[in-house]
Amino acid sequence: MTLAQLIFLAAAAVTLVAAIMVVTSPRLIHAGLWLILSLAGIAVLFILLDNGFLAVVQVAIYIDAIAILIIIAVMLTRAVMSDADRQINRMGLAAAFASLILLAGLLAMVLQVPAASPAPLVEAEVNLDALGRALVDVDGFILPFEVASVMLVAALVGAILVAMAPARGD
């Protein structure tokens, strides 16, 4: 077993165990911390797949921004739902069954992927230069890129509006 295989197995195991803990942990704050571990495992997998840039993006945006935002939301709404309450809704069993069917369907689909596409791999490093050019190239992805920036501004302004405390004296 090569070193890369070992690292892959370890990262996969950490990611999956942390994901299971996110789904099952009765304490919200613990679920948030497990989520960070799971996201970090994904970042390690990105590095293994020779994509250091996306690993950095994963850490900077997912772990730094999104997970911390979620944990702050947990703290803001913490007093409401006590950790001792029932965490699973009435349809829990049916939902678990539906997830099993989903897993079977996904695995059946995955196993049809043509095995061992011979990994052509021109250069070992991900071509960051090409990625940056593709994002702003007229023939590339400039339209979705600009739309994404407008969408982000709209979403953040909207989030402020939605979450703003109602004015006094309404």
């Binding site: 999956l16 919200l28 029932r86 965490q87 699973i88 939902a95 539906a98 989903l102 996904l106």
Partner: peptide
């Protein structure tokens, strides 16, 4: 992905 779907389906808390 299945674990995520399971979490959306069974948990009662919106943040989870």
């Amino acid at each position: 992905f299945t674990l995520g779907a399971l979490g959306v389906l069974i948990r009662r808390n919106a943040i989870v």
